[in-house]
Each structure stands twice: as structure tokens, then as C-alpha cells.
Amino acid sequence: MVHELDDFFEVVTQDADLASGSAKSYPIVVCKTVNGLVDYVKARRNVDSCRIKIGIDGGQGSLKICLNVEESSDERNVINDSGVRRSLILALAPNVSENYCNVSKIWNLLKLQTLEAFVTGDLKIINILAGVMANSSTYPCAYCTSSKSDLGEKKGLLRTIRSIRRNADLWTRNGGIRKNAKKFLNCAHDPLLEGEEEDTILCKCPPPVLHIFLGIINRIFNAVAKDYQMESEAWASAANATRHSQFGFAGRHCRNLLDKRNILARGPADKYFKLLDSLQRVVDSCFGVALLSYYTKPSRHSVMVGSTQDYLRHQNFTF
């Protein structure tokens, strides 16, 4: 049982680009046949209908690509199947940084273009997969063409595989000068995500819900701490939440803070309670495996999101 998957993997030597601009060869563990591994897992788990999730992470000094086979007929099974204990590593590249060149090499080794799957990762890796430059760029969003000065204020056009490919080609043909990339919406490479030309990045690669959630909760807490220090301390204590000096509150602690938002109600920090209450409704509606039925109704959803945006503007609260 311990070695039953050995035949699916091999070690290859691959050149990887370093941050310094040089290249170095590294041993990389890769799956030889991802489609074959998926079929094997489905047979072992006696699963017919499933969703395939590919996760990419460049933390802890290595580049990792993982696979989850999620049974689609039962939501409880999907939650279990999406957990880290059900993840299968497809590729492991120690000491290899996450950039477009390195990710594309491993992506091609795995032949992930042949796999029908949805892809998850943080905002950095999503930009890499989309072929868009870093999140500090003038046009930083992998999903739309809003400039960083307009994010949250003006809607951009949804990026498609075609639009990124076309702009990246135009940038290259115009010299590929980095400072001029903003003229081409900071599109630098062909998307690694496979699909039809008109497919949007939003449909191919879901937004990283956890990272968005962590950012929102930490910024709200920082705002409460700035304006109402005693209330923020009482809130953190009730939630049994501990803040890291560099990274802020982690996932479990952020969820506890949202659950204990009532601590802020009917006091000087009540405006933040209302904000958190609105956030909870959005989380309940669309942060899970399936959308709640009313989320897709324009009137209810527009009121929920629109009122939250208006409230944030009124309070001059900036994410």
C-alpha cells in the first residue's frame, strides 16, 4: 500500500530560472501520467462523477503542484476530498522559485493541458498562470483590466485567453520592454490555462477565497484596533485569536473573529459589526462548494454587495 503509486512518478533533472537571472539544474519529482493517476484514484475510491482540482503553491522554499479528486455527487464528500489529507502531489521542485518560466516547464512536463480541471492558487500564482505580470503592475488583476488606481472603483473588462495572448504578442513584437508593458495591460506571456479563446480567466481559475478572506478580516481588525483599541482586544480575546507579528491572523483565527463579531455590536465599533455582518452573508452565499440559491438572483445579490460597497465608501474604508 505504501508504494502502490510508485509507478506513476519519476525524477527528472530540469533547468530552473533563479531570481538572479541565471539558471541551475534541479531534480524534480513529477507524475508521468496525470490522467492515468486520476483514473486510478477514481477506481480505488469507486467514484464515477468527480471534479478535478489542481493546486499550486510556491511556499516553504519549493514549488509544488497538487491534485484533488472531488466526488461531485455529495457536498460532504467534496469537502473531505478537497482537504490536504486527500491531496496528491503531482510535482515537487525543491529550491525552485515560482515564476512563469519555471511553472510553465513543470506544467508542460505534467501535460496538464490535456486535463479538464479547475486551478487554485494565490494571487501571485494566478497571475503567472494567466500570463499577466506581478500584482504590483499598473494592471495587476488576472481577472480584469482595471488599473491598480481604479481597483474597487471602476470595472474593467474581463480578461480572456484571447485578449491576454493578443496583448502579450503585441508587447513582444514592440520590443518586450518592461516599462512599456502597461500599454499592453501588463500581458507578458501566453496563458498556461487551457480553454477556448473567449474563455475568461475568472471561469478557468476561481479567485483565491481564503487569501481574500484573510486580507479582509485582517484589515478590518487593524481598522478597529486603530479607532477602538479596547474593543479590538475584547474581540480578539472572545475569538481566542492570536495575531502573528508579521502575517496577522491565520485562517482559523480569522473565521473565529468573524463568528465573534457580535462583540462589536451596539458599541462605538458598531459600524464594523455591520460591515462584518454583511461580509458573513457574502461568505455564506458564495465562499462554499455551492452557491446559495438567492446569490444568483440579481436583486438580492446587488443589494447585498452594493450596500456593502456604499458603506465602505461612506466610512472611507479602503482595502
Score class of each variant (00 low, 15 high):
R281I: 00
R281N: 12
L279F: 15
D270R: 01
V289K: 12
G267I: 10
N222V: 03
A238G: 12
S299T: 11
V289W: 01
S237K: 15
E231P: 07
G248C: 05
D277P: 08
D190L: 04
G251L: 08
N240W: 05
R252D: 10
K297R: 08
L275Y: 03
L185V: 08
I220N: 02
H244K: 13
P207S: 01
T296P: 05
N180S: 12
R261H: 00
P207E: 02
S278G: 15
A241C: 09
V289D: 07
S299K: 14
L264P: 10
R255I: 12
D284K: 15
N240P: 05
K297F: 06
Y294I: 03
W235T: 01
L276E: 08
T296A: 11
G267L: 00
I216Y: 01
A269W: 06
N262V: 09
A181G: 05
S232M: 05
P298W: 04
A290E: 08
M304N: 11
L292I: 05
R300C: 06
N262S: 13
A238Q: 14
A225C: 09
I216K: 03
G288R: 08
Q229G: 02
P298A: 02
L264N: 07
S232H: 06
N256K: 10
E198D: 13
S278P: 09
